[in-house]
Design a protein around this nucleic acid. Structure first.
Lengths: 245, 245
DNA sequence: CTTTATTTTTAGCGTCTACTAAAAATGGGG
DNA sequence: CCCCATTTTTAGTAGACGCTAAAAATAAAG
């Protein structure tokens, strides 16, 4: 019945495969690929086979295969040996999946009492099973939050995200005051440590000193002080605080 | 936690596959098969290939294949042409899956405002993605309910269910007073209609009259009256109300 | 600008789950 | 007790995803 969407040129118009890509439900692996490509490509554009592979923990050869298929479905543009770029359809699905993930993470922490370092895995599975209706109900119960527990912006239901680029704590000049905005949700150990020193989204930080040769930074976090390694500092995204007005 | 993995193998235990069956995470299809077999076999014992197939909406041949594999894993006892029966391990997984399903259904209706006829599909997908921890948190938030919105008993975390057998509304003698206990969650139309006439779990019903030749029943539902077909009456499980004391 | 290293793709497979068509068991009616 | 309808199983396939090993492109280095 399905006449193999053969002639998928580099353009859209998937002739006979006239599915509504924007609202179609994809398999979990497909959603994962699209999410991975979305945030590897970032604003820049393309993602490489290898990067996608290591992000997803699969072999590069598997990525090539999946990518071919998804390109055939019009979810991404692909030229061999050239990397992939999401089409609007692919991006829409990626954003819906990310919205699900982040709303779920927020609900788990805000309502169900999960610690912020333990929501990622749970959300990773639920995001593929939750209907959009459920996600909207969760979002509503939360008062339509705009960011998740780790400070990541939650895309709106119609696919818009706040994509401003932030600086890392490691980039701040000594003395500059900033507000902790965001950190990846993927490293539980890091998250636990950050919680321990109270370096969580919204908190004010200031770099008090920076040891040479990429040494540790001494921070003021709220009222307390903390010394953190460069590696950690690079993971923490902040926004400068315009001095009081 | 207790309940060591009972070495249930009475026959061909699957040799090298020495997994802890009791807590192992199964794929969604496997969980679905076990659930289906659990409630087709009921207390009686075995389920037939055809019944499982039509319950799951797959071809009988597919059931044979899956059943062979599950038997190999020690989740069920199987003799070809003889039907299947869950082992203790298989039953444990079925019950945990059913617990997830019912806790989720309850949460969706009680907390998130879903109508009782719309929770089944959502729960059907979430039950395979939700961790046991999540389910326990949901159950706790609900005060550890013992039955779901449709009156089905929720198995406990350690695998016990209330399995008393109920009569259907169609079996009641005229005049008998009973309490509506339970109805299947799988037929949205039926559920909507029952909600409309307020025939929901806990409500008192009485058969006022029964037309001959399997005709409709006239009921008193709470304070109101309703006339329902035999087909519907057979779907509604009730328990007799011991006259006041 | 050729040689080497890296990245990406192809080829060939394996697993899980489902399907169809055809063969084999089972069991009910006469 | 035999025949036929029904149930169940086997055989052969398919598609989604993943893997490894080897070939092919591309990029880097001398």
């Amino acid at each position: 019945m399905h006449a193999a969407a053969r002639k998928s040129a580099k353009h859209k118009a998937s002739d006979d495969t006239v599915l509504d890509l924007t609202s179609a439900r994809m398999s979990a692996p497909v959603e994962d690929y699209l999410k991975a490509i979305y945030d590897l490509a970032g604003k820049s554009g393309t993602a490489s086979t290898n990067d996608v592979a290591s992000r997803l923990g699969v072999a590069p050869a598997s990525v090539t295969g999946m990518i071919r298929r998804l390109a055939g479905q019009g979810l991404l543009d692909y030229e061999r040996y050239r990397g992939v770029r999401l089409t609007d359809g692919g991006r829409a699905i990626a954003l819906r999946t990310i919205r699900r993930h982040r709303v779920i993470e927020t609900y788990l922490t805000e309502v169900l009492g999960y610690a912020w370092d333990r929501v990622h895995d749970e959300a990773e599975r639920l995001e593929h099973a939750a209907s959009d209706e459920l996600v909207e109900r969760l979002a509503q119960a939360l008062g339509n939050p705009t960011s998740d527990p780790h400070g990541a912006p939650i895309p709106t239901a119609d696919g818009h995200v706040d994509e401003r680029s932030l600086r890392t704590l490691a980039d701040l000049d000594v003395g500059t005051r900033a507000r902790m905005v965001r950190v990846s949700d993927k490293n539980p150990g890091l998250l636990r440590y950050l919680a321990e020193i109270d370096l969580t989204p919204g908190v004010e930080v200031q770099v008090l000193a920076r040891a040479p040769f990429d040494g540790p930074l001494t921070l003021r976090v709220g009222e307390a002080e903390a010394v953190v390694g460069r590696g950690l500092a690079e993971q923490v995204l902040v926004e400068e605080v315009r001095d009081e007005r």
